[in-house]
Nucleic acid binder design. Structure first.
Length: 338
DNA sequence: CGAGACAA
DNA sequence: TTGTCTCGG
């Protein structure tokens, strides 16, 4: 998923507290997928309520939003709209991978290969309409704004940053930088050690910020050239060149100046090159959003999570208290004085 | 992933 | 208090 240009970019570790008062446009699809694939039991099954509905994403949203709001961060979720036609190959491929993973997971479970079963169960995660609907319902209850992008969420989020309505994009992917986002934050989580599944290995996971201008000047390339590099490596919208990774792509684009000249020199072609480039530089975006954070609607959240989805009352109330104490990123509490 | 329990 | 592990839904 996304584009494999991460190795080229400069990453600066940050604390969550260092992002206080920042508006972060969260790539909803990316974040929900992360929750679905990671919040699982040891056998690989996601969290579910007594009716069999998946609830991993609800758990993820509740606790992470409590942490972010507590840190004074103002999150806004940006959901995907209609994918562009040039993405259809990627979408088909993802569906294939998921179905394959589902079968392999079942097979591995039969054979008693726990680790394998877990891995394939993760890969079968799908952000479907129910997951999206549930998530929006919870966000409404938590008082956190969200919007539907006309097309790609990352493109919309990048637009919001360029406009100055948001400060950073929260995503594990780098695509929003191609769409012109000035700043991306990855690992948007309370920093700490994470145990790798299976082995007894712990890794430190800290939030990290990637600044577009900083990365470009360090690489000595323009934004357009960064897009060209991504196009060489391959994106969600094009296949990329054979045996070309980020390092070789950087070298080629530096040497020839642009992807067009690279293709000319190597006598190769990329289908839809022009429309893919145009999609990165001028994607469909919308001004139809309102960024307003409000106090959580406690009763509605409790009804939704506890009554409908079997969450523990105590846990939900605790998370709501954390949210309530920080709702509006300080704005709300300040208003009390006027 | 993140909370909570329990050990050190 | 800090680290390690399990459970949550």
């Amino acid at each position: 998923m996304g584009t494999d240009i991460g190795d080229l970019l400069k990453k600066r570790p940050v604390e969550l507290s260092g992002l206080s008062s920042k508006v972060i446009a969260i790539d909803a699809y990316n974040t929900l997928y992360q929750f679905l694939s990671i919040i699982r039991q040891r056998d690989g099954t996601p969290l579910k309520d007594s009716n069999g509905n998946i609830t991993s994403h609800l758990s993820g949203i509740l606790y992470r939003m409590a942490s972010l709001m507590e840190a004074g961060i103002k999150p806004v979720f940006v959901f995907d709209g209609k994918p562009p036609a040039i993405k259809s190959r990627t979408i088909e491929k993802r569906a294939e991978v998921r179905e394959n993973a589902m079968i392999r997971s079942a097979e591995a479970r039969e054979k008693g290969l726990a680790e394998e079963a877990y891995k394939y169960a993760q890969a079968s995660s799908k952000v479907d309409a129910t997951i999206v609907g549930d998530s929006k319902k919870l966000l409404s209850g938590l008082g956190i704004p969200f919007m539907d992008a006309p097309s790609e969420g990352e493109a919309q989020a990048a637009y919001m940053v360029k406009k100055g309505d948001a400060d950073l994009i929260g995503s594990q992917d780098y695509d929003s930088l191609l769409f012109g986002a000035l700043s991306v934050v990855r690992n948007l989580t309370v920093s700490g050690k994470r145990k790798l599944p299976g082995k007894n290995i712990y890794v430190d996971v800290k939030p990290e910020v990637i600044d577009l201008e900083e990365s470009l000047s360090e690489l000595g390339i323009t934004h357009e050239q960064l897009i060209d590099i991504a196009l060489c490596v391959g994106t969600d919208y094009n296949k990329g060149l054979a045996n070309i990774g980020p390092k070789k792509a950087l070298k080629l684009v530096r040497e020839y100046g642009s992807i067009e000249k690279v293709l000319l020199a190597k006598e190769i072609e990329i289908t839809d090159l022009e429309s893919v480039k145009a999609f990165f530089t001028d994607p469909p975006v919308s001004d139809d959003y309102e960024l307003k954070w409000s106090k959580p609607k406690n009763e509605a959240v409790i009804e939704f999570l506890c009554e409908e989805h079997d969450f523990s009352n105590d846990r939900v109330i605790k998370a709501l208290e954390r949210l309530e104490a920080s709702a509006g990123g300080g704005q709300q509490t300040l208003d009390q004085w006027f």
